[in-house]
């Protein structure tokens, strides 16, 4: 039952990623067609454009949402691949613990960076 619930979350997270990472990829790599989120001259990763997006609460919220969805989707997918290789029960427990700690730590770093970037952009 627990795995069924986690699998459903995995698919749900995939849908969230599809929308938000699709937006991110459009901004970063289809900038020749879509410039609305890169109002300043230069590439989408130019500091002026990073600041322009960084000021937006919409981007702050969607970055954190994308971060959480992608970490869960990625680490749960990795867990499934590794579990299919039939590790023993102690290895499974260790793997669960490691992936959980790594995921939470990366989420904390990413969320801090998103918030700090938002603060820097607002002050720029």
């Amino acid at each position: 039952m627990r795995d069924q619930r986690l699998w459903t979350w995995h698919i749900g997270a995939g849908a969230v990623i599809l929308v938000l990472l699709g937006l991110h990829m459009t901004i970063m790599h289809l900038d020749a067609i879509v410039r609305v989120f890169s109002p300043q001259p230069g590439e989408p990763i130019a500091w002026a454009n990073v600041v322009a997006r960084g000021r937006s609460a919409f981007f702050l919220v969607t970055y954190v949402l994308l971060l959480g969805a992608a970490l869960f989707h990625g680490f749960y997918g990795l867990r499934n691949i590794l579990f299919e290789l039939n590790p023993g029960t102690p290895a499974k427990k260790a793997l669960n613990g490691f992936l959980l700690v790594a995921g939470v730590a990366l989420f904390a770093v990413g969320t801090w960076a998103a918030w700090a970037g938002f603060t820097v952009a607002r002050g720029a």
């Binding site: 500091w47 990073v50 960084g54 971060l67 990366l106 770093v109 990413g110 801090w112 960076a113 700090a116 970037g117 820097v120 720029a124």
Partner: peptide, 12 residues
Amino acid sequence: HIGVTASRAFGE
């Protein structure tokens, strides 16, 4: 990517 893009927290 998380590590690299975190650099924007420290400024331009």
